[in-house]
Design a protein around this nucleic acid. Structure first.
Lengths: 300, 300
DNA sequence: ATGCTGCACTTAATAATTTAATACACTGTT
DNA sequence: AACAGTGTATTAAATTATTAAGTGCAGCAT
């Protein structure tokens, strides 16, 4: 019924490993210094030292701390395994929403999500609070959360917003200095697009990865913390919806390749206007595709 | 040590008020129906009915519930006063940051913020989690949160992002249909700008409000949930920084009035290109002002 | 003087606890 | 039988309590 002592356990093992580098009789560094090396506060260090003294690994009296014996594997302390990564919660959550086609206005139970994603409840609450800033979820008056996403209006607004960001990125790219990494990336992408176009009949499903790489390259020109967060969400959503809308996938992808190439060529010619126009065209197609993929799933 | 029963208390008083509309001996509606009218679940309704029965206001046996006597003021139950509004936490928080000029990289203590803003800790955590999506705060590895904002790079990226959104809004405004409310708003704004320009020597400090109205009008043309959230934050930050940078406030405001008028005129002439150009000019000035106001405060 | 420790106090993470919502079976009535 | 309502059990959400961890300061030893 309180916070876990994982921090202490990890620090303890780290200190123990440090002891192995000492020789019996050696003096240990100060608490402050140990804290710095282990990356924890003195409070935790003192707990570690207490245990070390109890096990007879060290003697400890005030500032006099000496190694009494070489630590054995039995001295180590068990660390509860970290639990599934909490960092990619966003990816997994959106994946879940899109894969199971969770309909708009579904009530989200923190308790249930906590179990399915194996993440503590309070982290989920924070995560959902973050998503609510993107308008993906909202609080229910009777408590808990509600999924908002993937109605028609959502898709339209998302597409529009994406267009604004991406057209801006294209404009910036056109004016990027010659030594900017984007140019070599675009050269590579151009070659890969041409290669895929030659084998489009069989390899058309490989376009998805190429698409992601292309848009990432373009957007990487704009270094902006406010857009960065959005891009992740946006690309995930578009990515998944494309993967499922299997209607005319081959033709769609072939067309998209040409659209990408048009943008790349305009950029390489440093023709900002042409690049913007080509991008606008491509984004328009994207929006249509996203909307029609929604229509196939539900009528939200 | 558990959640509050405010929901029950409020529901109880509501049900009591409903009882007053009945006559002694009347039958009460079903639990489900009462729940619907009071906006709570049956669980709460049953608690309410229990108390009503205890106080002898009603008789209750299964589905037989009758009003025994007219409720008196003494039957009401005390409701803990709501506590300071939690809805404007964002406004108050940003206000606090900007007013006290909280420096970048300051550690934010949830406990302390909870006291200063009189808001439960868990709500603050959710709030901060939301702000972290905007890149305003971030988690510290050792726990808690850290304020990121108001370095030079932050101001630059914020300005750039604002420009992207606002230029897009201007483009949309130029193509808004004649019956769109923005046109009458712009006409009003135009008049108010001219009026203020005539008395700029004495009333220059009134520009701040006008500025906010102007940008709000422009941005209201774009109906997009993703931009809406950002606009609130952006306008607050710009708003406050302008208020404090008192250097040459009069000249700055006079110049800004002319810039606004140029945008308005171009829009009224439906000249999208000219409007964009004028807006770009204005946003450039804004950015410079924001940056120089930072320089006066600190060197973050 | 300076760095280290002892100690007290504050804060953060997390589980426990109570309130509230919900699902389902049962019952009486038409 | 169908339906609306209630009794009851299960589950979830909000909020507090509790423990772990961080932080600051006074005093002490070198």
């Amino acid at each position: 019924m309180a916070r876990s002592d994982t921090r202490y356990r990890e620090a303890y093992n780290r200190i123990l490993a440090f002891c192995e580098t000492l020789r019996v009789g050696d003096d240990m560094p100060s608490e402050t210094r140990l804290g710095e090396t282990a990356g924890v506060s003195r409070t935790v260090i003192r707990r570690c030292l207490s245990r070390l003294a109890e096990l007879g690994v060290i003697s400890w009296d005030g500032r006099d701390k000496r190694l009494l014996r070489v630590p054995t594997p039995g001295d180590r302390i068990a660390v509860p395994d970290a639990g599934s990564d909490t960092s990619d919660l966003e990816q997994r959550f959106l994946d879940w929403v899109l894969r199971f086609d969770v309909p708009a206005n579904t009530a989200l139970s923190v308790a249930e999500l906590s179990r399915t994603f194996d993440v503590p409840q309070h982290e989920l609450k924070e995560f959902l609070a973050g998503l609510s800033r993107f308008g993906l979820v909202t609080r229910r008056p009777e408590g808990g959360w509600r999924l908002l996403g993937f109605t028609k209006s959502f898709a339209i607004e998302l597409s529009d917003f994406r267009s604004v960001l991406e057209l801006n990125a294209v404009s910036h790219a056109a004016e990027a200095p010659v030594d900017h990494p984007v140019w070599s990336q675009l050269a590579d992408l151009r070659a890969d697009h041409l290669r895929l176009r030659a084998h489009i009949d069989t390899d058309f499903h490989e376009f998805s990865k190429l698409d992601e790489r292309f848009h990432q390259a373009i957007n990487s020109v704009v270094r902006n913390r406010f857009t960065a967060e959005f891009q992740k969400v946006i690309s995930l959503i578009f990515h998944y919806h494309y993967m499922w809308d299997k209607t005319e996938e081959k033709t769609r992808n072939a067309a998209a390749i040409d659209e990408h190439l048009a943008i790349i060529e305009a950029l390489e010619a440093r023709d900002a206007e042409a690049a913007r126009a080509a991008a606008q065209e491509h984004l328009r197609t994207s929006k249509t595709t996203l909307l029609s993929s929604l229509r196939h799933h539900d009528l939200g």
